[in-house]
């Protein structure tokens, strides 16, 4: 029972990261109609920017987190402007190639600036709490709480504000949105800013627990794809549920069978779910 609870806790912690990253990916996918393959690399860069602001500049963890999030929002806007917007009217394959190009650029950039070896952000909250036989570090709890706050905040923004509603409107009908007077380019820019900023939040929360490395973006980006497909393309609840589900599958499979196989469980679940429901858990199919 204690092993089970411990693994559920770990699963929710990983799932929190996955859910946030997948959420950012799905938002941009709705707007662009293509996946931003470089999304995992934005997450990676967010982690390094936290290191830069918090450790290199010595601002401390929380100020570093805020700075990293702001800086990443700007990076997201720049990416939209110079990589994707010029390709708007072009065939989708061009944007695909541009996405692969930008992920290679980001990974090499991190390698050149910070080196290929892992970097460690010192854990600001190393204290341990023991609850019903489950050991949890305060930082791990913080990951879970941070994700919940972020998801609720984003939900409120999307459902209750006009700016948030424009994101949904553009995703559902780009031309319809233009004809109601929405500046579609501005909405794209804002969506990229939110997407990159949320990736930076996820990276900042988790980087005191795991080492930073230039390659960490590729793995997480791949998993975010699994989640987005699993949850149904472009579906926000799908990204959240899918994120937690993947975290739990990995943690329970890893805990009870073998940690070496945790990626096998993740991809196995994807194949299984898509075989049963090809549109994903929350997919609406073609409208």
């Amino acid at each position: 029972m204690e092993l089970f609870l411990q693994q559920v806790f770990n699963g929710i912690m990983f799932g929190s990261t996955y859910a946030i990253v997948a959420l950012g990916l799905t938002l941009v996918m709705g707007i662009l109609n293509i996946p931003n393959f470089a999304h995992g690399h934005l997450y990676m860069l967010g982690g390094y920017l936290l290191f830069f602001f918090a450790i290199t500049l010595g601002l401390g963890y929380w100020a570093g987190l805020v700075m990293a999030v702001i800086a990443m929002a700007v990076v997201g806007m720049i990416m939209e402007r110079i990589v994707y917007r010029p390709l708007n009217e072009q065939p989708h394959i061009n944007a695909f190639i541009a996405a692969v190009g930008s992920l290679l650029f980001l990974e090499s950039f991190a390698m050149v600036v910070w080196g290929a070896q892992g970097l460690r952000v010192e854990n600001p909250y190393p204290q341990m709490i023991d609850f019903m036989g489950v050991t949890m570090s305060v930082q791990r709890l913080l990951v879970i709480i941070g994700a919940i706050v972020l998801i609720l905040g984003l939900h409120f923004f999307m459902k209750k504000t006009i700016a948030g509603a424009t994101i949904e409107a553009v995703a559902q009908n780009r031309e319809g949105a233009m004809l109601t007077g929405i500046n579609v380019n501005r909405v794209s820019s804002m969506t990229f800013a939110i997407s990159a900023a949320t990736a930076a939040v996820a990276a900042s929360l988790i980087s005191p627990i795991f080492m930073l490395s230039p390659a960490m973006g590729a793995i997480l980006g791949m998993k975010a794809f699994i989640i987005v497909i699993l949850g149904g393309m472009g579906s926000i609840p799908g990204a959240i549920v899918g994120g937690y589900l993947l975290g739990l599958i990995e943690a329970l499979g890893g805990g009870y069978i073998s940690a070496d196989y945790k990626d096998v469980f993740a991809f196995g679940a994807l194949i299984l779910i898509l075989a049963i429901k090809p549109t994903g858990l929350f997919g609406k199919g073609e409208v």
């Binding site: 509603a165 949904e168 409107a169 559902q172 319809g176 004809l179 007077g181 929405i182 579609v184 409208v287």
Partner: peptide, 30 residues
């Protein structure tokens, strides 16, 4: 397009181009 809409010239397009998953009221507010 959005600037032309701002001037008060609005196209109600063929095929309607609504936001299918938004409520009626949200479509109107948009």
């Amino acid at each position: 397009v959005h600037k032309i809409v701002g001037l008060g010239l609005v196209l109600c397009p063929q095929g309607r181009q609504l936001f299918p998953q938004l409520s009626v009221e949200k479509n109107l507010l948009m």
